[in-house]
Amino acid sequence: AIMAYDRYLAICRPLQYPVLMSHQLCLLLVGATWAFSVLKSVTEIVIAMKLSFCGHHVISHFMCEILAVLKLACGDTSISEALLLAGSTLLLPMPLAFICLSYTLILVTIIRMPSAAGRHKAFSTCSAHLTVVVLFYGAVIYMYMTPKTKQAHISDEVFTVLYAVVTPMLNPVIYSLRNKEVKEAARKVLTKNWTSR
């Protein structure tokens, strides 16, 4: 959501960008993101600590995630699930709606640009971020916003890998490969390795 806002300011209000995206605002946005992340993590830890477990203590997952831990709990987990759903409702659709709004405004601005080169540059700037957003939010919304059963499904593991491994792994690749210096260095390394064979 912060990156979408940054892109919105850079594309839709380029002359006001330095004033609107000040150093203080950047620190505030990063701090708020960290605070929400810590709050979400602490909430999940408290939920897990209040659960009672009996019998089988092996998580049928490759990651100790709250949804996998809830499947091991004995008794009624409906309150814990309701708390997670409430948190997911707050932390998933709201930033996604903000991202969609930002990119809608960006799209309107791009369409109005007279220069084809400017439109192409703006689209390429936004397409990488949108790809990561769609992968991440699609997987997370599937995992946290759909009803769950006590049985583990292979799709749970696949979607967890998508949002917890693939998306963070794609970020540096997508964003650094757009940098001319990184592209040139990668080309040199690949050419050198290819010609040395």
Rank of each mutant, 00 (worst) to 15 (best):
C54K: 12
H56I: 07
L67I: 05
I110C: 08
R7A: 04
H56D: 14
L130P: 00
Y142L: 09
L90A: 01
V19N: 07
A1C: 08
T149F: 04
R119M: 06
V166Q: 01
L101A: 13
V166G: 01
E181R: 15
K183V: 14
C12Q: 09
C74G: 00
S115C: 05
K40Y: 10
A73Q: 00
F136P: 00
L101E: 07
Y142W: 14
Y103M: 07
S41Q: 11
G118W: 09
L90S: 02
T131M: 12
L72C: 02
A128P: 05
Q16I: 04
P14M: 04
T146W: 10
I154L: 08
S176M: 15
V161H: 08
H57S: 14
K121C: 09
K148M: 11
M21I: 08
V165D: 03
Y142G: 03
V189Q: 09
P95I: 00
M21R: 14
A97H: 03
V133N: 00
M94S: 14
S52N: 11
A186N: 15
A73V: 01
Y137A: 02
A73D: 01
Q24W: 12
L51A: 00
S41T: 15
G31Q: 03
I45W: 12
T131D: 03
I111C: 15
E181N: 12
F159I: 02
S22V: 06
F36K: 06
T160R: 00
S102N: 12
I174S: 04
R187Q: 13
T89Q: 13
I110R: 07
A97M: 05
G138W: 01
D6T: 11
M94W: 07
I106M: 05
V173K: 05
S176I: 10
T43D: 09
K192E: 13
G87W: 03
C74F: 02
I111N: 10
H120L: 10
M113I: 00
T160F: 01
H129Q: 11
L92C: 02
V46R: 14
A86Q: 06
V30W: 06
S22Q: 08
I99P: 00
A164Y: 03
P168L: 01
V166Y: 01
T104M: 15
N193D: 12
K192D: 13
C74K: 03
V166F: 02
E181A: 15
N193L: 15
V46S: 08
S37K: 05
Y5W: 14
S22K: 11
M49R: 15
L96W: 10
V165A: 08
I111K: 08
E81M: 13
P147G: 08
E44V: 10
C74I: 00
F159Q: 02
M63K: 07
S155E: 10
